[in-house]
Computed example of a mutant assay.
Amino acid sequence: VPPVPTYNVCGCGVNNWFRRRLMKLTSKAWFERFFLLVALGDNLLIILDDELGWGVTFYSDFGFASMYTIEVVLKIWAWGMFGGRMSFWNSNVFNRFDVIVALAAWLEVLASFYGFDYTIRSIKLFRLLKPLISFVFFNGLEAILKTMEVGTIALGTVVYLMIFFFVLFGVVGMELYAGSYSRKCVWADTGEVRQPDRYCKRLHQKEYAKTGLPFGPGLNVESNCGPMQVCMDVGPPNYGFSHYDNVAAAMITIFQSFSTDSQAFIMWAGIQSEPEWLALTLIFYIGIAFVLGQTLINVFVAVLTTVFSSTRSEYAEKDEEEKE
Rank of each mutant, 00 (worst) to 15 (best):
P3G: 05
V4K: 12
T6C: 10
Y7W: 05
G13I: 07
N16V: 04
R21T: 07
R21S: 13
M23K: 11
L25N: 04
S27R: 11
W30L: 09
L37T: 03
V38K: 02
L44M: 08
L45S: 05
L48M: 10
D49K: 13
D50I: 12
T57G: 01
F62S: 12
G63P: 03
G63L: 12
S66M: 15
I70F: 10
V72A: 06
A78T: 01
W79V: 02
G84T: 03
M86Q: 15
S87W: 10
N92T: 03
V93Y: 03
V93R: 07
V101N: 10
A104T: 09
A105P: 01
A105E: 03
A111I: 02
A111Y: 04
Y114G: 01
T119C: 07
I120F: 07
L125Q: 05
F126G: 01
K130M: 14
K130F: 13
K130Q: 15
S134Y: 15
F135S: 13
V136A: 10
N139L: 02
A143N: 06
A143C: 09
L155M: 13
V159R: 00
V167N: 01
G170L: 00
V172C: 05
M174L: 08
L176N: 04
L176P: 01
G179S: 01
S180R: 10
Y181C: 02
S182Y: 03
R183F: 03
R183T: 05
V186S: 10
R194Q: 15
Q195P: 00
Q195N: 13
D197H: 05
Y199N: 15
K201T: 08
L203A: 06
L203H: 10
K206N: 13
A209K: 15
A209I: 14
K210G: 06
T211Q: 03
L213G: 07
G216M: 01
P217M: 09
G218H: 13
G218Y: 11
N220K: 12
M228Q: 11
C231R: 12
D233H: 08
N238Y: 04
Y239M: 09
F241P: 00
S242M: 01
H243L: 00
N246D: 15
A248R: 12
A248D: 06
M251I: 01
I254Q: 14
I254R: 13
F255C: 06
Q256T: 00
F258N: 02
A264I: 08
A264Y: 07
F265Y: 11
F265N: 06
G270Y: 02
P275I: 05
E276R: 14
W277K: 15
L280C: 00
I283T: 10
F284N: 05
I286D: 01
Q294A: 10
T295R: 08
V299F: 06
V303S: 04
T306L: 13
V307W: 06
S309C: 11
S309A: 13
T311F: 02
E317S: 14
K323M: 10
